[in-house]
Structures are given as structure tokens and as C-alpha cells.
Design a protein around this nucleic acid. Sequence first.
RNA 1: GGUACCAUAGCUCAGUAGGUAGAGCAAUGGACUGAAAAUCCAUGUGUCCCUGGUUCGAUCCCAGGUGGUACCA
Length: 306
Amino acid sequence: MDLSSQYNLVVILGPTASGKTSLAAKLAYQINGEIISADSRQVYRQMDLGTGKDLADYTVDGVTIPYHLIDIVEPGYKYNVYEYQTDFFKVFEDIQTRGKMPVMCGGTGMYMEAVLSRFKMVHVPANPDLREQLEGKSLSELSDILASFKKLHNKTDADTVKRAIRGIEIETYYHSHPEIEVDLPELKPLIIGVKIDRELRREKITRRLKTRLDEGMVEEVRRIIDSGVHPDDLIYYGLEYKFLTLYVTGKISFKEMFEGLNIAIHQFAKRQMTWFRKMERSGFHIHWMEATDPIDQRVNEILKWI
RNA sequence: GGUACCAUAGCUCAGUAGGUAGAGCAAUGGACUGAAAAUCCAUGUGUCCCUGGUUCGAUCCCAGGUGGUACCA
């Protein structure tokens, strides 16, 4: 009997600093798998230390496990859920074709859910006529227009003029193409969650932040800015890139940067857990495992389920 | 050693004409469909430093302690 017939995807999720990458790599090594990253920031090239890429984690016993959707776009670009979903399924089918097991690993809840819930998302091209028509309207006018639609698809936050216009654009497209259907592959996922005690998680985050600063995280940000990426674009990536850019451009002191960033990462980890709990409530079964349990023991346990 | 000022939430501080108290930050819970490491919503938190006095009643007034800060010696 083919063991891989029960599941066609393994998912490893968890908050930042839970050690999910090493677990995913070790597991992939055992099951002839390849990793599909689900991280909205590791898609960017050059943003290594700040996004915690830890590429060394993908090497197990001298073998480098193939990984995907890391280093695929340039800093400054605005990657999004739609692109992620498209890229994911492309890679997913490719891995399947080659007879290997896809292992999705990451902490970006919305990206993972867009895949697991197979959100209906199609390419919506820019609509120049519509954009011209909406030009000059205030945010509240745009919000009213957006609200007047009987929502078919788009539920994005319309908190800036640009996003509101894009929202209207997407909504308009869906209304004028009601026949559109998306055909996504069936998923039979085994979902593993790595949980870590709250206090331990905070300690690890702070320790890791210090290490990465020692390793040159400030220089990395400086280099990216020098290469021509506008500081504002970097700030919008949040966390490390936000606080380090503010520090590098002299807006805040080192102390303010360190303390503010440390707190922000703690808050981020909390939000990640909120998302995972919601996924459970909405019907996804997550097998939780303790981050502090020996990694081989955890891998063996997962192997039993597969 | 003397003088002055201070002591209230995890932190920084406000306040009570004497009726046991409130902001910001932090923390915690939640939302999330095209920037999601973003963005947004909700919720607490207390020997008001200690002891005594005045008072129906003291976190607040008075006295003494203790600790801190500044200046003087």
C-alpha cells in the first residue's frame, strides 16, 4: 500500500522562533520531501537576517533539502496573497509530478489559509479607465463605493486610497466576470503545529534578536537602502525592516529600536497564534507538538501518522 | 551629617477641596481573502511605602520611620 496516498501535503506551522524550519527539513529528509515556504517576507532576496531565513537549517546530514518560494522577488516589490497562492500550486504540482512529498512550512497564516481553504482568486488586470474615473476621490468616498458592492470576492482592508482603488478594481472585475471558476488541485493535508511556552518564546525571540544584530542585521538594511530601495517601502515590511530603517535613517535611537522591535516581535508571535487558533475553530485539525521535545522524537511521531 | 523634593498598576506618571483611584505604554483575548511581519477592535490590572495621630471616614492632613533623588557640608 502506498503510504503517501493518505495525505498529499504536510503542513508545519508555528509562531516565529518555534523552530519549525528544522523540523520541516528533518521530516522532508525522511519522507523524500521538498519544502514550500509560507513566509510573506522570506520571498524577498537580500532580506536574509531580518527575515530569519536560516538557510543552513535546510541541510540535514549533509543533504540540502530543496526549498521553494524563498528569494523569488526583489526588495521593494509588493508581493501578495494572490501571487502566493498561484506560486504555491505551481510548485505543489511540480513536486507531485516528480514523485516527491510537498511540505509547506511557515508562519504567515493568511498565505497558508489561502492555500488550504483554496480561496477563489484570479488574476485581475489593472483597469486604466476605472482608475482614471476614481482618481482624486477621497478615501471615504472610495470606501462608500466599495461598500456599495455586493461583495463577491474582495475583502481587503481599504485603509489607504491605493488599496481602496485596488479593492474596487478587483470587485468590478469579479462582477463583470461572474462565470470565472478556478480549478485548484485537491489537498489532503496533515497539519502539524509547533507550540512553545509563552515565556520561553519571548526569551528566544530576544536572544535571537541580539544574535542577528551581532551578525550584521543593521548593515543588511543599510545595504538594501543603498541599493536604491526607498526607506518607506522597507518600513512597510514591518518588524525588523521597519525598526532598523528608522534607526539607520536616524529617526530613533539604538535603544528605542531594540526595545521597540523586541516588543513588536513578541506581539507578532501572539498574533500568529491567534490566527492558528482561529483556523482550528474553523475546522482545521492541527496536531500540536512541543517545541522543546527532541526533534527526532517529533519526526518519528509524524512518520507514524503519514 | 543637614536641607529640599519624591514614594500610586509590570513601567512612566496623573489624581482625590478627606468618601479606597486613572492615562499612556506593556500584557491578554479577538478580527483578518490581492502590502498580512500589515491593519484594526476589545479587556483587566492596585496592601495608593510603613507605623502612629486627627477624623464618622485617611492614598490625600499631621508626626515619626524607611527608601530614592538633588543641593549643601
